[in-house]
Write a protein that binds this DNA or RNA. Structure first.
Ligand SMILES: [Mn+2]
Ligand SMILES: [Mn+2]
Ligand SMILES: [Zn+2]
Ligand SMILES: [Zn+2]
Lengths: 140, 140
DNA sequence: GGTGCAGATGCAACCCTGTTGCGCTTGCAG
DNA sequence: CTGCAAGCGCAACAGGGTTGCATCTGCACC
């Protein structure tokens, strides 16, 4: 998404929550919208380098965005979370995780199966994640 | 698995690798065999509390067991790895992760689908993980 | 356009999971 | 038995994320 459009969309979505509209929230959501792929905390810090936002504030803003349903948190094997703007439902498709560089992306064309009908006694299924692991184009 | 049997099986498997047979390797593998479910580093430390093993050694032994194919490493959303004795292939079935307590267990009856045939240009799929998230019996 | 205050921010210090470096110990081949 | 490569324990470190607390600010209310 273009810079200008990202800023406008971010402003509209943050306003729509009815919660406080702050520069950090606007800037972080716009940064997520500008990137297509899932971004780690570290990558976002770099994107926001000009007039940087505090490390902790960035964590808190990301939590808030996830809590508001404006962002998704994807956990990957390298123990670092990735975030995407909530343009899509991420429970309906699989995600790819590069074994080499840790990059994460949505495999929109790979659908996830439905929740398993039979669970062990007392267990309740709430969600399903399908992760394809391998080597990305950049690392091949 | 019973304590006595776990020790015997562990001894046989460690010997069979042709590598050095050390007390730490025997004790850790036996601990994994005694537990049915996936165990975190922390849980294993507690299991081995009597005459404890060094924290770093435990990490190194777990790495070694995984490298030898005697244990599987399962990564979960709480950023702590879990380990199981390699009695089963863990790429063929789904895993359950409790959203509340972090417990992980094998859903042997839930089979994973085959690797997706079509991947984005330049991407190579090597493995597939299916994770069901929800609330476990203990947390319900 | 003020004003008050809940809630957001920045900073420092912290926690958890896992690693690295290095000197000492030990399994085991010969 | 002996030598030594491999394994072990300890201390220090690293990355990713959290907590406590003082200060600042969006915005509801006037
Ligand atoms: Mn997705
Ligand atoms: Mn399994
Ligand atoms: Zn890659
Ligand atoms: Zn639970």
């Amino acid at each position: 998404m273009q810079r200008r459009q990202a800023e406008q969309v971010a402003a509209a979505r943050v306003r729509a929550t009815g919660e406080r509209v702050t520069p950090a929230r606007l800037r972080v959501l716009a940064a997520l919208l500008r990137r297509g792929e899932a971004a780690s905390h570290h990558e976002l810090e770099r994107d926001l380098a000009a007039d940087a936002i505090d490390r902790v504030t960035l964590y808190r803003v990301l939590d808030w965005l996830v809590g508001q349903g404006l962002a998704h948190r994807i956990s990957s094997a390298d123990r670092a979370w990735r975030f995407t703007a909530a343009d899509r439902r991420h429970d309906a498709h699989a995600h790819f995780h590069c074994n080499r560089c840790g990059k994460v992306l949505c495999l929109d064309e790979v659908k996830t199966p439905r929740l398993p009908a039979a669970m062990p006694r007392g267990f309740r299924a709430e969600g399903l994640e399908v992760t394809v692991k391998g080597i990305c184009a950049g690392c091949a």
